[in-house]
Write a protein that binds this DNA or RNA. Structure first.
Lengths: 226, 226
DNA sequence: GCAATAGTGTCTGTCAGACACTATGAC
DNA sequence: GTCATAGTGTCTGACAGACACTATTGC
């Protein structure tokens, strides 16, 4: 029995998410040298000279792909097997990153996550995106992670919509407000947003916020799909 | 500016835990070619020919190190940087695995986790073990993972001690029993354990148990250390 | 009887879910 | 006034924490 100890290929795979019009989008790149357009999530290797650690590499990949920094990245898992890539044994650390809704980026190359089946995705990238979506959905149930997707000023209703979009469910308004306000995660501004009805209090995220863990999960009622 | 795209070294690092006398132990191996004895957690590379995926490799490493299978392994994180290993840029997927208390293994090479500072551990292995301990502690707060460390027959008090050892805190008996029994994770046997006081009902884990997620965390009161 | 451990009854507090209610703007 | 959306009051139910209580054994 022969044991091979040579190194597997190693790559980083990053699903970058943004929120737009009550819809989650993921950033995809066209793969080169393909007869038909095949789309892939952001990926790349480690720059052994310049990167200090993996998170560093991921931030670099995100910024060089979309031109803006991500306020929150998270490692989802590391997978590795002989079948996911035609080149052979391949290990990949899978991350997701989010960007703020305020960033004024065109929607080119951003794909609504509920329409991904219509497109041709590279390798196992569809499954990787789903793993990341599951993770951010789980996190939305018991942490404040979705706050990182909000613009600098937002209303509680905006924030609720953001959570609901990630959770694919409707949250009860009073519970949601109590939870967020009691946790002290956001700060009211001296401003309101005026529209065609009662003005809404504007908030910003409290300085230093990274992640808050709630003591209980929030579930909501599953959304019916149109 | 030059960009290096060659591959980093890749390794698996596995902290194997067992419970013994209300104490968590981790399995360490002496590193070869060291003037003084330096201890390391189980580690190795991927067998590109025989391993189907990373979990497979981890199970292989565990079994070849201690001779028994682990009923539960979990990937904790993947780290990578230029400084953790003298060989240079190194990526490591960090796992922990647990084994059943029933396994009749001598305690050779098993180290109490609260005594690790007394020993000389390789590289960043102490930090890796602490990451794994933190993870299993977190999991003990809201899942049934510690059940995998129990022998085939155990009492509720045994189980509570197992949780308490991992959590480093004392749990209120009634709450604990209610939580475990209401979740339906264990099955009473037609047996009792008799000692020098009232006999205790024996249980086994329900077939098919892998992990149960409770809806709330359990905290307990921090143990005073002697 | 006593000591030791197993196991229960039951109250409290916290917080999510539900839902009806009021408030304030545009028109 | 109506419509739309913001925001509140308050009851319920689930479940963890606390803690005193009873139960069953060995001695």
């Amino acid at each position: 029995m022969l044991t091979t100890t040579s190194e597997p290929f190693f790559a980083l795979e990053v699903a970058i998410f943004r929120m737009c019009h009550h819809q989650l989008y993921v950033y995809l790149q066209p793969m080169l040298n393909q007869p038909e357009t095949v789309w892939s999530i952001v990926n790349g290797g480690i720059d052994l000279v310049h990167d200090k650690n993996i998170d560093n590499s991921v931030r670099r990949l995100i910024e060089s792909a979309i031109g803006v920094e991500s306020p929150y990245i998270e490692q989802v898992k590391t997978i590795g097997n002989a079948t996911r890539h035609p080149q052979g044994w391949m290990v990949a650390a899978v991350y997701y990153g989010v960007i703020s809704q305020s960033v004024n980026l065109p929607l080119d190359n951003w794909f609504a996550v509920n329409q991904l089946e219509k497109h041709d995705l590279a390798f196992d990238h569809l499954a990787l995106i789903y793993s990341c979506l599951k993770r951010i959905k789980d996190k939305a149930q018991y942490t404040s992670v979705p706050l990182h997707m909000m613009p600098p000023e937002f209303t509680l209703t905006d924030l609720q919509h953001c959570f609901e979009t990630i959770l694919l469910s409707n949250i009860e308004k009073k519970s949601f407000r109590r939870r967020i306000l009691d946790a002290g995660l956001i700060v009211p501004l001296d401003k309101e947003r005026r529209g065609r009805s009662r003005p809404a209090q504007l908030y910003r995220v409290k300085r230093g916020h990274i992640i808050h863990h709630f003591s209980r999960k929030m579930h909501g009622k599953s959304k019916d799909f149109a």
